[in-house]
Design a protein around this nucleic acid. Structure first.
Length: 152
DNA sequence: CTTCTTACA
DNA sequence: TGTAAGGA
């Protein structure tokens, strides 16, 4: 008999539907070593039921700003069982935080300079400052979600 | 219709 | 990431 996905196993399309991640992105995750599906006789990827939560975790880590190489290291710390301390996760989280903080500082400086230049570039009572209440809000919204949505 | 790989815009 | 190509 032909080997196929069994038990809770599912093909890529189903995992995509159940996670809301595109098939494309799922294949990409595999390329990055984040997922390691088996293959059935047809060469189709077989994902385990546990991969649904695994993908959710991957997205969570990605949304912190981690890149795939870091996610690979941090993933085992979160996957399943009551892991004791998770050094790899903490380490990578600290790295990302540092990068994010310096990034915000740089952008904040750029914004301040930009406002100064803009102010001097405008004759007189030009357009009022865009953000009168400070820049906190716009700074917080500099992160763009890079998660994929279901492919209809 | 779904999945596979490769590769281009 | 989308997508076309050419099969299974």
């Amino acid at each position: 008999m032909v080997k196929r996905c069994e038990d809770g196993d599912m093909k890529i399309g189903e995992l995509a539907r159940r996670t809301g991640v595109s098939v494309r992105a799922l294949r990409y995750y595999q390329e990055q070593g984040l997922l390691a599906p088996t293959r059935d006789a047809n060469g189709y990827r077989c994902f385990a039921a546990s991969d649904v939560s695994r993908v959710a975790t991957i997205q969570l880590l990605f949304s912190t700003g981690m890149r795939s190489s870091c996610v690979i290291e941090a993933l085992p710390c979160m996957t399943g069982a009551t892991d004791d301390a998770a050094p790899a996760l903490v380490k990578n989280l600290l790295v990302v935080r540092e990068r994010l903080v310096s990034d915000i500082q740089h952008r904040t400086r750029s914004l301040a300079v930009l406002e100064r230049v803009l102010a001097s570039a405008i004759p007189d009572s030009g357009p009022a400052p865009v953000f009168e209440g400070g820049y906190d809000d716009c700074i917080v919204r500099t992160t763009t979600p890079r998660t994929a949505l279901p492919s209809k």
